[in-house]
Design a protein around this nucleic acid. Sequence first.
DNA 1: TTGTTGATTGACTAATCAATCAATAAAGGT
DNA 2: ACCTTTATTGATTGATTAGTCAATCAACAA
Lengths: 196, 196
Amino acid sequence: MSPRIGKAELRKRALIGAALGEIAERGTLEVTVAQIARRAGVSSALAHHYFGGKDDLILATMRHLLAEFRLNVVGAMHEAEGPRARLSATIRASFGPEQFHHATISAWLTFYAWALSSPGAARLLRIYHRRLESNLTHALKGIAPAAEARRIACGLGAYIDGVYLREALSPTPTDPAAAIAMVERFATLELSEVTP
Amino acid sequence: MSPRIGKAELRKRALIGAALGEIAERGTLEVTVAQIARRAGVSSALAHHYFGGKDDLILATMRHLLAEFRLNVVGAMHEAEGPRARLSATIRASFGPEQFHHATISAWLTFYAWALSSPGAARLLRIYHRRLESNLTHALKGIAPAAEARRIACGLGAYIDGVYLREALSPTPTDPAAAIAMVERFATLELSEVTP
DNA sequence: TTGTTGATTGACTAATCAATCAATAAAGGT
DNA sequence: ACCTTTATTGATTGATTAGTCAATCAACAA
């Protein structure tokens, strides 16, 4: 039984994982290719061989996080019946254990900041924002008028980001359930006004 | 009439302003001391002379932003009568024109990210967080039970940060009034439940 | 076996940049 | 005028680091 995935794919995954680890651990994108490569157990030249440059490696790391998040969402969506449940599923997915732990949150924050100076990073984050907001809006349209749905989705998106931001800088880790409860409460309050 | 402020203070202010400008314009803390010094019209050696090192200069820039924000808050607080007005004043101050424009918001985001790796920056942000939350909680305690006040203040703080974060990455600038309306609505919704 | 392709590396390069320092200029007091 | 202190700079250094390249090494097909 030979490995189903090629050696190249294996190495790329290891490098992406190592990049994520270094970035989260050091809390900055100012990590050297050599550090990442060492953590992945290869030479820095190999990282360049597979990814071209440091920026490409970091972009690939962002894409990986994004894909993971997407998986989380579709998984949660699958078992959701009705618009309100789909709304809750989207919120719950945003705080899934895969995303909402310190290392990942730190990485997200560094990526957000990077987006200010990297068009590629900005593009990826815009895609993520659009997707999240689209999910929220779609679910909300089943409960509230379209205009209200869009407004509430915008607020929820900002709130989710805000909770992440606070968590990134908080010395004591927050329980994901508490974060979910905060956002759920906001959604319920907003909806109680538009669906009497 | 000789200048009331010494030459040293003048130069420091120029350097801090230049640092803020460079950081906001480039969207990153990876600006060179030489770039900052050139923008301030002095040599890079002088920046070191006055601030010691690059990190100290950037920390001073953060402190400057923080102090400006504080001024904004006390100013808005001064003309506020009663707890609900104080709550609104705090929110309004958070989105004052001095704070809520693109350059400043970009700088904030880079500082937030820096706090992940710089204890000094983390300390400053914690002070800012505590101050904001304390202001919010204090005002809210005049309207809601203490426990609820703390919970709502926590949510408001996160929401304000989230709105900032969205604005930092948004290609189109948001109207401060719209941001204030979003947060005000959040506060009103929360309060409508605890004060029947 | 042998040749081809891809994997992998150590060594090197070129660029960047924070920080230092010795030297000069300006200011201000006596 | 003289001396002390402070302001200011150009030149330099030492460290770091992304990216390159030619040289091995491993896999594997013919």
